[in-house]
C-alpha cells in the first residue's frame, strides 16, 4: 500500500505515511504486548522464587514436607492434589461431554439442540466461585450423608484404599466432582463445534454404506475430528488444573498426600490462595515457586491444546 508514489501532493502523502506508521507501530506494540506479558509472567515468578529455589533446589518438587514453623516446604502434596482432582474431573467430564456433544449434533432435533446448545454456552459463563459455593453448601453435606457412606459401606468399596477414610464430605472426590461440573459445559461446547466441523458429505457417505449413527460417530466423526477433540480435552484440562475458587472451599486445605479420595488435601492454586495473605519471606517465595510450577504446567497444556485445535482449524478453514 505504501509503495504508491508519484502523487502531486507528495508532502501530504508523507504526512499520511507518518500517521499511518504511528498507527501501525502502536498496533504492533499492542499485539506484541501479548508476548511481553507471557514472558513477564515467567520472569517475575522466576525472579520471586529465587530464594526458594536456592534453599530447596530440585528436592522441592518431590518433598512432602510442609512445615511453616521450621520453614521447610515441599510441593509434592499440592502437586498430588492438583493431579488427583483434575484426574477425577476429567474422568467424569470428558465422556459426559462427548456424549452430550454427540446428542446435540447427531441425535436431538434442531430446536432442542439449539435451546440446549445455548443453555450450555450460558452455563460455561457462570463464574467458578458459584460452583465453589454450591459445592460447599449443597454438595458437601450430600457427599457426607449419602454418597460417601453409600460408596464405602453399602457398596463395600471401603476395603479399597481409595474409599477408606473419614466421611466428612470434604476432600479430593468432592472437589473433583465440582471441577467436573464446572468444565462440563465448556468441553461440551468445544466438542460440539468440532463435531459440527466434520463435513456433512463425509458423514452422509458413511450413512450411505449403511452405518448406524454410533458407527458414523465413532469411526468417522471422531476419527476426523480427533485432533479437535484432543484440543477440547486439553482446554478443559487447562481450566481444571488452574482453577482456584471451585476447589478452595471444598478441598480441605491440608498439605498431605493420602490414597483415600475422602481425605482432605490441597492443590497448588488452593495453597496459594489460602496462605498468601499471611506469608512472608521464604514462605512467600515458596508460594511464588508453586505459582511458577502451575504456570509451566498450564502453559504446556495450553500449547498442546492450541496445537491440535489449530490443525483442525486449518483443515476446516476457520471457525472454532
Amino acid at each position: 500500500m505504501n509503495k504508491i508514489c508519484g502523487s502531486p501532493k507528495i508532502k501530504r502523502w508523507k504526512k499520511q505515511g507518518l500517521s499511518d506508521r504511528i498507527f501501525k507501530l502502536s498496533a504492533l506494540l499492542s499485539a506484541l504486548l501479548v508476548i511481553f506479558l507471557m514472558a513477564g509472567f515467567f520472569l517475575q515468578l522466576l525472579w520471586c522464587s529465587i530464594p526458594a529455589l536456592k534453599t530447596f533446589g530440585l528436592r522441592f518438587i518431590y518433598s512432602t514436607e510442609w512445615d511453616p514453623v521450621n520453614n521447610v516446604y515441599g510441593a509434592a502434596s499440592a502437586i498430588y492434589g492438583t493431579i488427583i482432582t483434575t484426574a477425577i474431573a476429567m474422568l467424569i467430564a470428558v465422556p459426559l461431554s462427548f456424549v452430550i456433544a454427540l446428542f446435540l449434533v447427531e441425535l436431538a432435533n434442531p430446536f432442542i439442540s439449539r435451546i440446549m446448545g445455548q443453555a450450555i454456552d450460558l452455563l460455561a459463563a457462570i463464574p467458578s466461585i458459584i460452583f465453589g459455593m454450591w459445592g460447599l453448601f449443597v454438595l458437601v453435606p450430600i457427599m457426607q450423608n449419602y454418597v460417601q457412606p453409600f460408596l464405602a459401606d453399602t457398596l463395600h468399596l471401603g476395603i479399597l484404599p481409595f474409599f477408606d477414610g473419614p466421611q466428612m464430605g470434604f476432600g479430593f472426590l468432592t472437589a473433583g466432582i465440582v471441577l467436573a461440573l464446572m468444565i462440563l459445559p465448556f468441553i461440551s461446547a468445544v466438542m460440539r463445534d468440532v463435531f459440527r466441523m466434520v463435513p456433512q458429505v463425509v458423514k452422509e457417505s458413511a450413512y450411505g454404506t449403511g452405518a448406524t449413527t454410533w458407527e458414523v460417530t465413532f469411526d468417522v466423526t471422531m476419527k476426523y475430528g480427533m485432533q479437535g477433540l484432543l484440543g477440547a480435552v486439553f482446554l478443559g484440562l487447562g481450566r481444571a488444573i488452574g482453577e482456584t475458587m471451585a476447589v478452595l472451599f471444598i478441598i480441605g486445605n491440608t498439605p498431605k498426600i493420602s490414597a483415600s479420595l475422602f481425605e482432605s488435601g490441597t492443590t497448588i492454586s488452593a495453597t496459594l490462595a489460602n496462605n498468601f495473605a499471611e506469608a512472608g519471606g521464604l514462605f512467600k517465595s515458596v508460594l511464588f515457586e508453586l505459582g511458577l510450577i502451575l504456570l509451566i504446567i498450564s502453559f504446556l497444556v495450553q500449547v498442546a491444546a492450541q496445537y491440535w485445535l489449530n490443525r483442525v482449524r486449518k483443515k476446516a478453514g476457520g471457525g472454532l
Binding site: 507471557m38 515468578l45 488452574g242 490462595a273
Partner: peptide, 13 residues
C-alpha cells in the same frame, strides 16, 4: 495460550 493461563497466576504477577 494466554487466554488459558490460570487467573491466579495473573494475580500473582
Amino acid at each position: 495460550v494466554m487466554m488459558g493461563i490460570p487467573s491466579i497466576i495473573v494475580g500473582l504477577f
